[in-house]
Design a protein around this nucleic acid. Sequence first.
RNA 1: ACCGCAAGCCGUUCUAUCGCUGCUCUUCGGAAUACUGAAGGGGGGAGGAAAGUCCGGGCAACACAGAGCAUCCCACUUCCUAACAGGAAGGAUUUGUAGGAAUACAAAGACAGCAAGUGCCACAGAAAAUUACAGCCGUGCAGCAAUGCGCGGUGAUGGUGAAAAUGUGAGGUAAGAGCUCACGGAAAUGAUUGGUGACAGUUAUUUCGGGUAAACCUUGGGAGUUGAAAGACCAAAUAAACCGAAGCUUAAGAGCUGCUCGCUCAAUUUCGGAGGGUAGGUUGCUUGAGCUUGUUGGCGACAACAAGCCUAGAUAAAUGAUAGAAGUUCUUCUUCGGAAGAAUACAGAACCCGGCUUAUAGGCUUGCCUUUUUU
RNA 2: GGUUGCGUAGCUCAACUGAAUAGAGCGUCUGACUACGGAUCAGAAGGCUAGGGGUUUGAAUCCCUUCGCGACCA
Length: 123
Amino acid sequence: MKTFSKEERLCSKVFIDELVAKGKSFNSFPFRISWIEATENMVPVKIVISVPKRIFKRAIDRNRLKRLTREGYRKNKEVLYKELKDKKVNVMFVYTAKTLMEGKELEEKLVSALIMLVKRINT
RNA sequence: ACCGCAAGCCGUUCUAUCGCUGCUCUUCGGAAUACUGAAGGGGGGAGGAAAGUCCGGGCAACACAGAGCAUCCCACUUCCUAACAGGAAGGAUUUGUAGGAAUACAAAGACAGCAAGUGCCACAGAAAAUUACAGCCGUGCAGCAAUGCGCGGUGAUGGUGAAAAUGUGAGGUAAGAGCUCACGGAAAUGAUUGGUGACAGUUAUUUCGGGUAAACCUUGGGAGUUGAAAGACCAAAUAAACCGAAGCUUAAGAGCUGCUCGCUCAAUUUCGGAGGGUAGGUUGCUUGAGCUUGUUGGCGACAACAAGCCUAGAUAAAUGAUAGAAGUUCUUCUUCGGAAGAAUACAGAACCCGGCUUAUAGGCUUGCCUUUUUU
RNA sequence: GGUUGCGUAGCUCAACUGAAUAGAGCGUCUGACUACGGAUCAGAAGGCUAGGGGUUUGAAUCCCUUCGCGACCA
């Protein structure tokens, strides 16, 4: 099912601090992606989406980018799930581009970013 | 009819598939109930500014015997309102238009006081507020005289400036001066008429004192502090902070509003009680100065009454994505039926209201002005 | 969510309680010196004082408002 429920979001401040401090990260335009293994999770992947306020001043722009990113992840998370096997990870997406992006284009970029993430986790 | 200005109002819609978040119903499972897990059905889900945080409240916690000072805010009148720096109606002032004028219409604003005190007013100018200087007049001395020196009188002649001592005329004088008079101007005070009042009209007396209070200040009025990350509760957990009792030494210290007066209290050790930090959950949380319609009162802001309605509640933060269709506006083409293309704004709730300010594609209504056409 | 401060030449700062041509240093440009460059000397350009409005005879300064950039509380 192409769902995206509460359990698949990373909400705890402690885990997010740990992810930022200890996680590995790489860039895949327009995202900067951080990830860390989390063996205690109930679901395979928990994600955080972040858009910096410093670049996008208006709340409506930040909201739109977060919604588009979340929609793209919801549709394409199978790419990640197939290759993960038994590993469990926390992932953070930070939108680092300076301009707004349309839905379809952003979805394509996200898929390629997910493929890169799979390679890095399995190696 | 078109263009412009002002005020008020509206500010996209529908279908399909997938998804998010509350509510509710059904079935199945767990549980003594409360409740909870899974599947399915139904129904709800951003704004006029949700924004800026510029004002005013509600609500909450803490503080609060009282007095003074300081600090900050407000400032024509009456009314509206829970309250306001908001709104309505009005007054005076200033500006603009029309007019010969009286006046009419429109717009604007933090419109108490400089006639309470202090300060400031560059350059120019004799002088920037009240004297002095030059000048003018009288007079004494020196001198043939021109003139010089001294004493006294005078107050705007000095043409600069943003601003120059109430304007014009006459009298008056040695020379002058509101020194006096006539006609005006302005201000203060008293009386009286109208008005709830600001104020306006009439009249009497007195005065002639430049501007600046978004300069210090004076007068009158007001302000306790902190904000939903406030606060309340729950489970895990269990402090050097809190409360009570006892004992000991000392009089500094602590709290109450920024300060002063004033008022209150003790610190430390032991015992007992009761609980904090941290990270979660529930609540606060959406029924409210609420919305819609109608009637009545009022010039109006608004109020009263009646009927109906329930209209987001997230929390690393929902309200979305894709596809198609429609609507609106503009451009081009046109067989005048239409077709194609482009655009469809500003912008996202975070406790809730009342305002103000700012952003805004396009449209609607009303009023005013200009031009053109018809009668 | 709330409180508070700052915007001046390309850069770093002045000009305080209003006074008229807004200064200083570094940098830039021109000339001199030198065979050439640096250093040095002389001179010049460069500002709608963040935007708009108001008070005032006069505003970088005072007041209101908008925009931008920080700091603090939790």
